[in-house]
Write a protein that binds this DNA or RNA. Structure first.
Ligand code: MN
Ligand code: MN
Ligand code: ZN
Ligand code: ZN
Lengths: 149, 149
DNA sequence: TGCTAAACGATAATTATTATCGTACTCTCA
DNA sequence: TGAGAGTACGATAATAATTATCGTTTAGCA
């Protein structure tokens, strides 16, 4: 009954319509064992011993594939370039994972006291931000128009 | 009594020990009037009509200066490269603005219902994240050691 | 097993950002 | 108010991160 890691990964890939390749398996396994927040380069360094001929481009492509299909997440989605926030008031953001648009959400009342209490002692808090990720209305409409069922 | 924008900016610069230059004034004024989340390139395009000989490098340097001194903020601080989140459980992050280290915070109970309610109708929510920015204990210790008073 | 589409590896190209360096400007301080 | 020191600016080269290209290999499936 005990399903192996490999079997679970194959199952995941089938669900997401991804070909099961050795490279993807190793990258997934190693990433899941890294308990920090690795960069693509760090993932590359980590899998290289087991896959000596792997290309850095493959690591990038694989990580993207995993993020797109939801197998893994990135810490904070890349906007391509630095983005300035001219709005000085505290407000949450909605970030579209498809078009990368950043939308201000109206102010809200979150319990920041609880959050701040979870910050390790000796850390200095500067700012607290919240972000909702998903697909914006525009993109959803566009998607529906392209693939009507 | 009515303080002009220029006077307020000069005051801000004095507080932060920044030289008051025409370029800085124009960049600050224009950024504050942009109600989206502009990239450095977009800021450059915006100030160019008024400062035809300005360099893109100056825009970058000025924006950094403003961010460092707290005159403006960036939407999500640049980690230099993509960062993978292998931890599938929801948890907030602490991001050190000095060394860029990303620390997992322990889980907490925020009122996500209120936040989700603020998302525009027709948007699809995928994930909600919270982030605390500041200076980590390491950096604070390092800073204290370098400038003991 | 054999075909076809997808994935991979090598590497070139692009994009975003930072560094360098000579010139210009700002800010004291006479 | 003018000189000098130091910072900022502009032009541009360099670097870092990411993406595109393309020939070869492989996975999925009949
Ligand atoms: Mn905003
Ligand atoms: Mn994390
Ligand atoms: Zn969108
Ligand atoms: Zn730090």
């Amino acid at each position: 009954m005990a399903e192996s890691f490999t079997e679970r990964f194959q199952q995941l890939c089938r669900e997401k319509n991804l070909a099961v390749t050795h490279q993807r398996l190793v990258i997934y396994r190693e990433v899941m064992q890294m308990h920090n927040h690795p960069s693509p380069e760090q993932v590359y360094d980590r899998v290289k011993p087991e896959l000596p001929s792997i290309s850095l481009a493959t690591v990038y492509k694989t990580l993207h594939t995993f993020v797109e299909t939801g197998l893994i997440r990135e810490v904070s989605p890349h906007h391509g370039s630095m983005r300035i926030e001219p709005n000085e008031h505290r407000h949450p953001h909605f970030l579209c994972l498809q078009c990368r648009a950043i939308t201000d959400l109206s102010d809200h009342e979150l319990d920041f006291a609880a959050l701040k209490a979870s910050v390790p002692a000796g850390f200095q808090v500067e700012h607290v931000s919240t972000e909702v990720r998903g697909i914006c209305g525009n993109c959803l409409a566009k998607n529906a128009a392209q693939a009507p069922n």
